[in-house]
Write a protein that binds this DNA or RNA. Sequence first.
DNA 1: AAATATACTTACGGGTCGCGAACAAACATG
DNA 2: CATGTTTGTTCGCGACCCGTAAGTATATTT
Lengths: 224, 224
Amino acid sequence: MRILVAEDDSRLLTQLDTLLHQHGYSVDLADNGQNALYLITENPYDVAIIDIGLPKLDGFDVIRKARQQEVGCPVLILTARDRWQEKVEGLDAGADDYLTKPFHNEELLARVKALIRRASGQANPVVEHGPLKLDTVTEELTIAQRQLELTAYEYKVMHYLMMNPQKVVSKTELTEHIYDQDFDLDSNVIEVFIGRLRKKLDPDGNLKPIETLRGRGYRLSRNL
Amino acid sequence: MRILVAEDDSRLLTQLDTLLHQHGYSVDLADNGQNALYLITENPYDVAIIDIGLPKLDGFDVIRKARQQEVGCPVLILTARDRWQEKVEGLDAGADDYLTKPFHNEELLARVKALIRRASGQANPVVEHGPLKLDTVTEELTIAQRQLELTAYEYKVMHYLMMNPQKVVSKTELTEHIYDQDFDLDSNVIEVFIGRLRKKLDPDGNLKPIETLRGRGYRLSRNL
DNA sequence: AAATATACTTACGGGTCGCGAACAAACATG
DNA sequence: CATGTTTGTTCGCGACCCGTAAGTATATTT
């Protein structure tokens, strides 16, 4: 999952960067509104965290202009505690949630997770698809009661697939959501991870939980 | 489905080319207005994506002159962000939708898909014809609940036929919509694909879902 | 009925794409 | 700093898909 963070206080910016990285997100950063707007229109983020008091272009405008251009990604705004009225204006501008500074890391993470879930139409933190069960809180994947040990990136791939069942997910799409800005799109990492996942999910090779559609992408098998 | 892209920024042009190719469209390119106008009057595109700021002949003129010559194909115009007022003039000139640069790839694809659907009078992403059901999101075809595995080109042929039921579709028409400019029209690929489709759709040969009208083309059987 | 045109079938080659194995690099851990 | 794990690259093999071409069948015309 890929997140945009727009915040001008550089201390807080790096803090958010490391925090989100630690929790497995890919992060792009902006320290002013112009840049934030550019990034959010150019890349498919799963969440954007935007401070209201940004230089060059304030957070409200970033959101409004992004929404004008039909950017659908969930937006979480940050406001100073003594400016809580701003939350109303922010939500009007098209934000989805807000948080007043200062905040607990856990609080932020929880909101982010909630937004991602809501966006994918999953109210529940446990995503199921046939015998597959993915608990997004504990990051555990089980297949037919058998629990699997996934590495961080294996988890990311699986997570994205489970969030988009019944859909053909191209390798580019996966790459764009799992890595940040500058990553070589011609790499074959995705193929490698799909391979590793298949081996773990289905060592004997009779279930075929991940289907390949030549030239188009991957899809979770519907008959499991 | 075949698309014309008219854009003078060569970076963006190639980006659009690859993006659309990745998603299974045939693409013709123009980097100036004159060429764009020539191509759009000469070929049956399913969508045209036209930048307003084209050299030699601007996007407005391309659209106006094309409409004068009764070119009916849906047009999506691209405008710079700070020129978003142009959208009004563009829509007046005969465009069907607009998008401001920069934009999300996903956004563009969504618009293109919507235009194609709208043009064929299909509001719904699932096209049905008798026992045939084609989901344009997952690219899955089912016939009487039985799901078929189609290859990329088999899908394209089927898609075009389903978008034009009750109509005789000639081989040339199919070729023109499925391939781009330089493709040998004397080839018999279409016949081959029709054959492959028939075998998959109707292995026993009693339904005859695709009829041949000798000398004129093919049509989906109306009594299914 | 023969000749011709059109469509269908089949088989094959070229090329692309995806997969797996092995290796290298980056990172984490003690 | 040494060791083990995770991540990402390279490369060769194999499978699949596309398009061609040649031969066969079926319709249409003469």
